[in-house]
Structures are given as structure tokens and as C-alpha cells.
Design a protein around this nucleic acid. Sequence first.
DNA 1: ATTTGTGCAAATCGTTTGCATCTGA
DNA 2: TCAGATGCAAACGATTTGCACAAAT
Lengths: 132, 132
Amino acid sequence: MSDKLRAAGMRPTRQRVALGSLLFQSGDRHVCAEILHEEAVEQQIPVSLATVYNTLNQFRDAGLLREVALVGTRVYFDTNMSDHQHFYLEESDELLDIPSNHTIKLNGLPEAPEGMEIAGVDVVVRVRPKKS
Amino acid sequence: MSDKLRAAGMRPTRQRVALGSLLFQSGDRHVCAEILHEEAVEQQIPVSLATVYNTLNQFRDAGLLREVALVGTRVYFDTNMSDHQHFYLEESDELLDIPSNHTIKLNGLPEAPEGMEIAGVDVVVRVRPKKS
DNA sequence: ATTTGTGCAAATCGTTTGCATCTGA
DNA sequence: TCAGATGCAAACGATTTGCACAAAT
């Protein structure tokens, strides 16, 4: 983790190493600041909520995390930087990866507006409880 | 506008009729509460910011507006309820419709998770200035 | 007359910032 | 040593809510 941080141009401080381990050691994760902070507290990692916010933003700026486009006010990050898609559970505000064998295929990318280039395509499938 | 509101199960009050006219009289629009409130004030429509927020949420719940999934903290609504997609300009936080003749085709919707149904699919093409 | 909507200000939620203190290179 | 990171609390921006008043049916 120290190396990963150094490679990204950040000092490997206790808090960053600890948060990085929580984020990157167990496969793909979807976190918001609040959740990650709770986890850290549970695991006896002393870190303030403000530092969690700052760290997530730094990780994003360094290309270690991706910010996910969502309806609503909260910001989510995804540790999976590869090209993939999400389910968004409207009633619980949860985010799930769409299994790669069910990914939606996109045909025909549009031309970007004049002078622009495409940075990425976000696909979010909003789902809600079946009312049946 | 009164009829449209009544059809949606809302009392056609002065404020709702006025905001509805701003929103639906001039083609497709992307608005956040702040912007719509400014417009209303400019046009001498006395309405509070709180009422603009409430009204936008009611319009969305009634199916007159769509909330757009975006990175970041502000909530945008789109008066275009038809199935369409957006460019998101990363440097300026702007939202543009993708012209319908350049829409991305989606192949193979995934199964929704157990007990869930698909409410909609949001596609956002993030673009940024070409660096060339 | 009854129900529903409105305005205001205060409350809330998620997030950022200022500043004194601490820490890693 | 000292630039840079952290914690705390206060500031902040966007949004929601409680309550007295006003308007629509």
C-alpha cells in the first residue's frame, strides 16, 4: 500500500495506508465517505471524517478511485477502475456491479461536441422493488 | 397547464402553474432549483426557493420531470421524459442532450436482481476538452 | 369549511475549510 | 527540520421541514 501511494505521489501516512487497505484489499467496493469512516472506526483505525473525505478526493484525483454518477446528493466511489456498469437500488441507495456477463452492450458512440473528447460512458440501471 | 397539473393529481395553484409554464413551454430544459427560482424572480413570479424545491420534487413524483444521474452534489431535472441520453461536460458541470439521431443503442438489458424491476437506464457520456 | 399549498426561518445533510497540532521523509 | 497531513469544529451549500397563514375546492 505504501508503494501504491508513493507511486501516486502521496505520502504514505498511517491514515492513508489504513484507508487504502480497507478499499483495495478486498476486491471491488462501493463506498461513500460516511460508510468508510464507520468501517475504519470499527477496525480501531483512528481517523476523522474530514480526513476520509479528503483522502477519497485525493485517491480519485490520483486515479485510484472512480466517482460514480448517481441521482441524489451523496457521492459514491468505486474501487473498480475498469469499464463496467451498475445497478442502483432506489429504495436503499445501494450500488451493485452488473455482472460482467450481463453487461449492456453499447452500439454507436456519439461524436463528442466540437473540441471535446469522450472521457467515459456511465451506465446506471435504476431498479426498485417489484410491486406485483 | 392547469389541466396538466390536475391530470397529475395536483391542485393548480398560482405558483405551480407559473413554474410549470417556465418548465414546459419552451421545449427541453435542464434545471436545478436555484436556476428555476432565479428565473421566476426575474419574471416577477413571487415564489420562495423552498416552494421551488417542493414543486420540482412533486413534478418528478408525478412523472412530469426526470431527475438526472450526475457526479457531484447538485440535483438536475430534465423536462424531456422520453428515453434519451446526456453529455456531461466535466470542466463546466454542464448537461447537454445527445441528439436523438446519435443515441447509443443498448443491447441486452440485464436481469434485475431478485424481486426488483428495472425503473430506467441512465446513460451519461462524460466529455472533456480535447487536449491536442 | 375543509383540505392542501405556501413562505419563512430554522433544521438537516453531506461536504469542505481554517487553523493549531502532529508526523513522516 | 519542516513541508505536508491530521483533527476538530466551524463554515458551507444544497435541500428539507415545522408551523402559522393563505388559497383552492
